[in-house]
Structures are given as C-alpha cells and as structure tokens.
Design a protein around this nucleic acid. Structure first.
Lengths: 180, 180
DNA sequence: ACCTGAACACCGTTCAAGT
DNA sequence: ACCTGAACACCGTTCAAGT
C-alpha cells in the first residue's frame, strides 16, 4: 500500500472509531469521511461496506475473545468458564451501540465482511459449550447456534437507552439458565 | 373527520399494513404514501410519526393481548398461564419484522406514540408475574421490567433471517428459565 | 378542513476525471 | 495507484399554496 493510502486508511479508522463510539454502528459513513477530511469514495475504496469497516474495528477484540476461549480450554471444563466466556462475548457485541443488529444480519449472510467474525465466535463458543455439556454442567437443550443467538440477544438488550440499566442482571439470568 | 379524510386514513392504513408485512417496520413512509396514491404530507397529517402509524396498526392486537391477560387472571395463578401469555406477547412483538427495535426505543421514550402500548404490555405482564411469584412458580429474580425486556429480546431473535429457525426453541428456553 | 407539490437537508453508492 | 467531486436515486420532514 502506498504511503498516502496507508495514512488515509489508518486515519479513517481512528475517526470511525470515535464516531461509532459516539453515534453507534449506524452512524453516517459520509459523516465519517467528512470528519476524516477524506473523499467519501476514499472511504469506500478502503472499506467497501459498513460491515467491512466495523469488522476491521472489531478484529482486535475478536482475537482477544477467541484467545480467551483457547485459554479456558486448558483448564478443566466448568460452568464458570462457560459463563465467563459468555459474558466476554456479550461485551464484544456491546462494543458499539447497534452492532448486534449488524452481527445478526451478518450471521445469515456469508457475503458479509462480518460473517467470519460470527463464525469464529460461534466456533469458540461451541467447544466451551460441548465441554461443559460433557461434564453435565450445561443444558443439553442448547447447541452452538443457540448460544450465539443468546449472546446476540443479550448484547441487543444492552443497547442504551432501553434496557441498559438491567442488562447486567438479565445477562446473568440468561447465563445461569444455560447451566443445569 | 371529513369523508374524504376518513377514506384516505383507512386506505393508508390498509396499504401500510401490506407494505410493513412485506418489508418490515422500517419500510419507507414515502413508499407507503406512493402506493396509497396519497401525498406524503397527507400520510404525515394522519400519522405524525412512524411510531404513530405502527401503533395504530398494532392497537387491535394489543387489545387481544391485554384481554388475554385479564382472562388468565380469572383462573388460579400457574406457570402455564404466565408462559402462555409470555408467548402471546412475543407474538405481538413479531407482528412486523423489526418492530421490536421500535418498541425498545419507545419503551424509554414517553413521547413516543408506542409508549402507551409498552406500558400496557408491561402492566399486564406484571400482574401475571406477581401472581405466579406469589404461589412460588416464577423466579423472584425478575420484575415487570425484566419480563418486558425478555419479551422484547425474544421478539428480536425471531426476526428473520438470522435466528428465525430456532426462535421457537429459544423462546421456550427463556420461558422455562423464568419459572422456578 | 384537508390535500399536495416542492423544497430542504440528508443518506448510500458509483464513476468519470484528475494527479 | 490512489483520490475526488459530482451525479444518481433515494430518505424523512416541513410548509406555502391550492381546493
């Protein structure tokens, strides 16, 4: 990548992070380009879709999340490790307001730039869930797709302003329902 | 209301119901006006906001829902009655794709035309929940706001195409978690 | 009283023209 | 190779002007 292109790329990312933090994942791409002092088409050149932009912003945290799952798998399976990871995942989905709607759509769309992220979360969750089920601490009624859906729903509930104030309580409630 | 106004009003509603059924609750209001052969400003005169339009469309079903709650209260409190009503409520939130996002926003906004609907659902759920808790069949960890949030989240999960295929299973899972 | 077209200030997306 | 302004086809919202 040419030096000027690289500079634009990283600068757009920095500005995008700020704007999405403030306005949520549905923020105007035009606005981001404007604030980055860059032509709108330049933003599109680097990030051909909203999903691609968000994916780039979330990638680092996704690595943290999957690393955490790998870490937990070194320990013996337990209810705690499943719940801990569940809550970490929900936090991942809470990174920007409204990101859960993007993820839910991407989940069903292999063309989306966020599809791979969804798959990785799903796969990481699956092994933790399977291990917990094997030792009888997690409900056998759930499979990996259910787990992903519950993470997404918990993330959705956390979006301010609606249920934000009881989100922690409800996430805990759902997490405990997965056990037994 | 003048005869021509009344005719426009009902015709817009008919067309809106079709369009929302097809395209979900975020469908273009312009498109609805166009399909109803009515000026866009005429639609706005009758329904000053998207919420007002959706509220009018949902009102009938809300009455069914609250009537059902009143009905259930005549019987002795039970886990079944709470769960049945929970599922009815989720169905109410599923009436149009994406309506749950509108409801969640309206829940925190007393200015919204949908706020009253939210409150009525919440109140109806509260009495059923309280009765079930009193006889020890529902978890004491939940209050009426939690119940509303869970209904909304369950409705959100049902939006196609993401988790649509396992929505019934997950709604059942959440419903059973509320017991005990 | 009610309706309408047009205007305003926005979107996302694409592309020919520039350096 | 990369960037840009402008164009296109849309939004939601408002309002003066018509009947």
């Amino acid at each position: 990548m040419r030096a000027d292109a690289r500079k634009n790329y990283t600068h757009v990312l920095t500005v995008a992070r700020e704007v999405l933090t403030e306005q949520g994942a549905t923020a105007s791409l035009r606005d981001i380009a404007r604030k980055a002092d860059v032509g709108l088409a330049t933003l599109y050149r680097h990030f051909p879709s909203r999903d691609a932009l968000v994916e780039t912003l979330l990638r680092t945290e996704l690595d943290v999340l999957t690393d955490r799952a790998t870490e937990l798998e070194k320990e013996p399976p337990s209810a705690e490790s499943l719940i801990d990871w569940f809550k970490d995942s929900v936090r991942y989905f809470q990174r920007y307001r409204g990101v859960t709607d993007l993820m839910a759509a991407a989940y069903a769309d292999p063309q989306s730039a966020l599809f791979t992220s969804c798959s990785r979360v799903r796969a990481a969750g699956n092994s933790l869930l399977a291990r917990a089920q094997a030792v009888g601490v997690a409900s056998n009624e759930l499979d990996e797709a259910d787990l992903f859906a519950l993470i997404a729903a918990a993330g959705w509930m956390s979006d301010p302003p609606s249920f934000n104030d009881r989100a922690d309580h409800l996430i805990d409630f759902i997490a405990r329902a997965m056990l037994r």
